[in-house]
Design a binder for these strands. Structure first.
Lengths: 248, 248
DNA sequence: CGAGCCGTTGAGGGGATTCAAGCTCAGTGG
DNA sequence: CCACTGAGCTTGAATCCCCTCAACGGCTCG
């Protein structure tokens, strides 16, 4: 059971004669960090009609690997995972995206999606058709800069994933994952705690090992699992465990 | 000992009154796959004077993590590795770049470089000052598209690194690395074979384990090391070993 | 209430690390 | 010319971490 996300009311100063979706876009709480934050009100007004804001539940698919890329998405809330199947035949999660992240950028290059994108938590998206960005790209330079910034950000996240989550002992990798998830904590300070099977797909370990590590941290008081799929972290104790781990 | 790379003569039809560097750019053997392949001759003529073509030997540094990003580079030949130091304190190679790849894209966003870039083999580069792309970006759309394409390519390589090189047994990871290096083989079919220490930094294993795996493949006749730092692969036998590995 | 999924824990075995020693080879200097 | 040296590679033995296989408990749902 996942509690529905709160819906913010439209600010009063925007309840004018604009198109409804334009008001939603302008009021978007992630707009300052979102892709279209780079656009002025006039540009926004030209495109708002084509932007959908789909909402998905856990384990619902956003797009699949190989699907024709018809749109890019901005993550407004929630966590999205990118999966692919290794040649060995097992599922591997290669990256996570959270609030403000841009996903499915391949679409802008008229390419099929490279990975399967699946919602981890309840997820709110902005769906931006590819053609929309195409025509904007002709004139607006701010958008392109913002786009490149996101691209680079995704790249750095992918490299950080290799450096952090694919390195060291099982305990260390779990600690790093928790640190990453902590950056996506909700307003009550709760994190999304993946199923052990998903943790295995992220960290290349078995469900048993993932369970053992989480249990160990739970016994140390560093994490308090709050089913379903959530937990509270004690950052200090986690840091202490990580430090004692590095010392060894 | 690394043999000097062959220098191609300038095609006859280009020996006109152009600037010398313009001729070099136009004759560049990787141009069709290079960033500026998207530009026409006129644009090329405007910028050629500012493009340097540095040449580096093995283990020479191209840029360091945190350096102010003054330029992007196209790899004309050779292999470049991206390193960073994990919080654990040990060196980790997070990606490789080869012919035609664009490196240091952070510079276009006026950011410092995210990783240390080091030449693995003899490397030839095109150095493209950031300001040059800035002014081109205003008018030329083809360049921007090409730029985004490369960005996406780098991202996909990073994700494939996680899926391939950070997954499975030590033998499997070594096999995957060899397959990757094979795609950068030179004209004689030789690959760059990293030092065991570097293999360890790529695959998160010890030098001893890396050595054991290479030795095992050598005994199986799947790889013939040709010091210094090179080897010849038997693709069929490598595939056979990989298959028998997956079966287990 | 039984079925099924998920998480947990234990026992045993295997693969990677750790620690250690010996090897090749290039460079150096007696 | 050749011992000496140090870096890189290889191999062995012991240890340990993680995987595999197995069993069990809590929970949700039909």
């Amino acid at each position: 059971m996942n509690a529905p996300l709160p819906i913010r009311p439209t600010p009063l100063y925007l309840q004018d004669d604009s198109h409804p979706q334009a008001r939603v876009c302008a009021a978007c709480e992630v707009r300052r960090s979102a892709l279209f934050g780079a656009l002025d009100a006039a540009s926004l007004d030209r495109i708002h009609t084509h932007i959908a804001t789909p909402q998905l539940g856990p384990d619902e698919r956003i797009f699949g690997r190989g699907d024709p890329g018809g749109a890019v998405y901005t993550v407004r809330s929630g966590i999205v995972r990118f999966e692919r199947v290794t040649e060995g035949g097992d599922r591997r999660i290669v990256r996570l995206a959270g609030r403000g992240d841009l996903i499915g950028q391949e679409a802008l290059l008229q390419r099929p999606y490279a990975d399967e994108a699946v919602a981890c938590t309840e997820v709110q998206l902005c769906r931006i058709p590819r053609t929309l960005v195409d025509q904007l790209g002709r004139g607006e330079n701010a958008l392109l800069l913002e786009l490149m910034r996101r691209w680079q950000q995704a790249l750095e996240q992918a490299e950080a994933w290799v450096a952090d989550l694919a390195t060291g002992s099982a305990l260390r990798r779990v600690l790093k994952l928790l640190a990453l998830l902590d950056r996506h904590a909700d307003e009550q300070g709760l994190i999304w705690l993946p199923r052990r099977e998903d943790m295995g797909a992220m960290l290349d370990m078995t469900v048993e090992t993932a369970s053992r590590m989480v249990s160990r941290l739970r016994r140390d008081g560093a994490i308090v699992p709050l089913p379903p799929r959530h937990a509270r972290l004690d950052r200090d104790r986690l840091a202490a465990v990580l430090a004692s781990q590095d010392a060894a």
